[in-house]
Design a protein around this nucleic acid. Structure first.
Lengths: 340, 340
DNA sequence: TTGTAAGCGTTATCAC
DNA sequence: GTGATAACGCTTACAA
């Protein structure tokens, strides 16, 4: 028995192809009798409609694209992206959409270009970071392909986005350290170019202001979200600022690097030095020592992004939405009262 | 200007749709003159053929599916999967294929079922682990959809697969420990049900045999590839086998858990206890201490899997291929000579 | 309620 | 070298 199609099923069920189509798509206006006959044949021959043909006819593919940038191996491997993607994926699957995951890198720009230009096979796109956003918006803006951003981007106020409340997260982290009696507190941030960093820095600084003393600008730096950056900066600061007793890292990966630098310099955490991370990655509880960190709902961000996108695809969102999810501080073993 | 299609382009270029099609697909039999005219119009209107329609006509979508199981958050977040996927993705993109990434979990089984049954939008599938394999093969076996496995599976000798040489990797790890003078060496393995474990155990044991003494079976256990498992087992063994001085872990994640247990028990690594991991994850160099580990070409495995699959799709592989990639030992700071 | 027929946008065959 | 024309497999008016 070779390829089944709707016509063969129709013939076998002694109805026309339209009846089969209606049954399959749960459309009204088909007699119970006919429906049963069709269903039986479908079942018997294990028939499934060809989704490609269906897409061609309906102009929608039920496929969405997720774009992220390749970044370094280090940061790819920390679990943040996997979890975010998992949230997107599961929400999509629940709502009947399938998803493509693509990594943007300059060497692959051409191919991805093709992929996006060919908007016909994607009902929508989720961008996980800024580089990818500029690239994508330029391609898809004029076409009617909906986009959702993970991480707010002030350059695109009309595009839906989800983020964690970055201000709040950093504020909580700094306040925790201040409450423990620390005053000489460093802050390593991750990405010069995003609003996220701006907000986290403001939250960090405001916690000091609210506590009645202000943050030391020498203790603040912006690098990249990598272990390497945390490692290097911590090493440098340990030499330069021996009075420093605590550190806020804008990601768990940065904290991981800092922890290693501390270890290599024989400074024990948390007895001599406290470290707070950001993200709440699954691995953070297995760091040495288990990391106190600001947990963000990474999976939830993905889920929300998918919801927003699918709503956009179905024209549900009148206004562009910009959602903020709540972070919360998780105290583990890497922070302690300052020792005098 | 609304939707372009091949007919509009044909009209604008004063040729028939067939000529346009030939130009676009680089087929012969079109005059240079006509080709130029078409190319100009295509360029001018930025026309791209509709890939859905093309797929319907050619019966191939240039889309492949990657299936993995959801597993726990912990193990998803360790970077192994991201790297493996990256290898697959980049090789596919280079060869003109786009890729879907799906996570299998029992709660999503129904949806994924649909996805796979609808084989029409997937030219091939790569399975990243065993559960997923059984599930998939059952669905796609009788249809002509090519499958490639990451990790050999003796149940499916006819399906191409890639793996690292597990025997060799474990052998090297154990030999390294033995060469350092350790004799009381534990081994924590990851998955009862896969051939991988069997091979790693054999490599581990053979290293002892070749060194002239045999492994202690009490020191060998099989659990799961998680930090939690490494943590628990190490804690238990520390109480039970105080004479143990070294440990081989069948993954870096297991090692990570073991390292934490050691830290909490105030046993310093590598001075009092040596640990070797397996995988060579990007994060392994930032563990405390940086982990000695058997590096496997994770990205390369993905790349190879994609190559095999695309070759299958194009009927290049006469015989089912089962490739083994070479692991290598990377000595960092978690292993040292046994102290007497 | 059911069936006919016209798309959807390509590729591919086959005369010319 | 070129251009009709028939697939590809489905959805959806519209007519019956």
């Amino acid at each position: 028995m070779d390829r089944l199609n709707i016509d063969k099923i129709a013939k076998l069920a002694h109805v026309s192809r339209s009846v089969v189509s209606r049954v399959i798509n749960n459309h009204p206006n088909v007699s119970e009798e006919a429906r049963q006959r069709v269903l039986e044949v479908v079942e018997k021959y294990n028939y499934r409609p060809n989704s490609v043909a269906r897409s061609l006819a309906t102009r929608s593919t039920y496929q969405i694209g997720v774009l992220t940038s390749r970044i370094s191996e280090e940061s790819l491997g920390n679990g943040y992206w996997s979890l975010l993607y998992l949230g997107i994926f599961e929400e999509c699957i629940r709502r009947g959409y399938y998803v493509h995951l693509s990594f943007y890198s300059s060497s692959m720009a051409g191919e991805l270009h093709q992929y996006l230009l060919n908007e016909h096979h994607l009902d929508g796109v989720i961008c996980l970071n800024e580089e990818v956003t500029d690239f994508t918006v330029k391609k898809l803006a004029e076409k009617e392909v909906p986009i959702v951003l993970v991480g707010h981007n002030p350059n695109y106020p009309d595009i839906c986005s989800v983020d964690v409340n970055n201000y709040d997260g950093a504020y909580k982290a700094a306040k925790h350290l201040i409450d423990l009696g620390h005053t000489e507190i460093g802050g390593i941030f991750g990405d010069q170019n995003v609003q996220e960093t701006e907000h986290r820095m403001k939250g960090f600084r405001d916690a000091f202001d609210d506590a009645g003393f202000s943050s030391n600008e020498d203790y603040i730096t912006v690098g990249s979200y990598t272990q390497r950056d945390g490692y290097r900066t911590m090493n440098k600061w340990l030499k330069k600022y021996s009075e420093m007793t605590a550190l806020f890292c804008a990601s768990d990966t940065i904290a991981m690097g800092a922890l290693l630098a501390l270890y290599e310099n024989n400074i024990s955490v948390p007895e001599q030095f406290s470290v707070v991370g950001f993200d709440g990655l699954p691995i953070s509880r297995y760091l040495i020592p288990p990391l106190t960190t600001v947990v963000q709902p990474t999976y939830g961000k993905g889920e929300k992004a998918a919801q927003l996108l699918i709503d956009c695809i179905n024209n549900k969102n009148k206004e562009p939405l910009h959602l903020d999810l709540d972070p919360k501080l998780l105290i583990r073993k890497s922070t302690a009262s300052v020792t005098l």
